[in-house]
């Protein structure tokens, strides 16, 4: 509760300092979002040629893509620049200042900055979801919406966990951003399409090892009522919130291990 109150103090000041840059601030939203238009165009070009891939039609593939983008953007608002800042602090030696404040450094890291860049993504994603739902003639009821939100939260936690885990590498490796880019942008890219189209090995990896499948593929099976296409066991689509919680817990442990290393306990 105290942290929420602090957050409410921090964010207006953050925005005030950013909006001082004027025009550039608004361009941040637009610029980031434009790249997604290209991606949608690729899906459109691909799908208008093949009609369906692996039983998923164009709007369904777009939903898969959009869910990946939406959940990543939400997670990134709270973690992306924040973890970047941490890396820079560790590199420059200014990370100490987080350790002399009477706040859990993890919370401090989150609240001291805000990824407004990603707000544009969120807006586009929500518009695209609405568009795809209407094209597919989906009319979820209230209970379905509640379930959808639970799945989304799980997916956001998964995305956040990966940002935190890869970012925490800076406590061990000097320039960790390379690691971060490979994992986040490389492997996450696989989840832009239904993972059922990939080879068995890749499916296992994306389900059990680096479980990006839970970000969009398994939730989509539920939302889009994709029976028969289930991978491994049939209840996996329900597992997203649990996977999210577990993964985020692991991420927090990794962060703490990183902090311990920084403080020189060597654990």
């Amino acid at each position: 509760m105290r942290y929420l109150k602090l957050y409410a103090r921090f964010i207006p000041i953050y925005f005030k300092s950013k909006t001082e840059h004027g025009f550039g601030f608004y361009m941040d939203f637009v610029g980031f979002a434009l790249s997604h238009i290209v991606s949608y165009a690729v899906i459109w070009a691909l799908m208008s040629r093949f009609q369906t891939i692996n039983g998923w039609n164009m709007y369904e593939v777009m939903i898969i893509y959009t869910l990946n983008m939406l959940t990543y953007a939400i997670a990134a608002v709270f973690f992306f620049f924040q973890m970047n800042d941490v890396e820079e602090d560790v590199h420059k030696g200014s990370f100490d200042s987080l350790l002399v404040k009477p706040i859990n450094p993890f919370i401090h890291m989150i609240i001291r900055s805000f990824g407004h860049f990603f707000l544009g993504d969120i807006v586009i994603a929500i518009l695209m979801l609405g568009f795809c739902f209407s094209r597919l003639d989906l009319h979820p009821n209230l209970a379905a919406y509640a379930g959808f939100v639970a799945l989304l939260l799980g997916a956001v936690l998964i995305q956040a966990a990966f940002i935190v885990i890869t970012g925490s590498m800076c406590f061990w490796i000097v320039r960790a951003r390379a690691v971060m880019n490979v994992v986040i942008f490389g492997i996450r890219g696989f989840a832009d399409y239904p993972i059922s189209i990939y080879s068995k090995v890749l499916r296992v990896i994306l389900t059990f090892i680096i479980p990006y499948g839970f970000v969009n593929f398994y939730p989509s099976q539920l939302i889009l009522d994709k029976e028969g296409g289930s991978l491994f066991v049939s209840w996996l689509p329900y597992a997203t919130p649990v996977v999210g919680l577990i993964l985020f817990f692991i991420a927090y442990r990794v962060w703490n291990a990183g902090l311990n290393r920084y403080q020189g306990t060597g654990s």
């Binding site: 602090l6 000041i13 005030k16 950013k18 100490d96 200042s97 002399v100 009477p102």
Partner: peptide
Amino acid sequence: IGAVFGQKSQLWWDTPVIESLRLTKYMY
């Protein structure tokens, strides 16, 4: 405790001094 580490500021880089101090107030 309070701490000042030489050349590294612990204030918020992009914010006016008074806002930084006010954040300190809330933080403590």
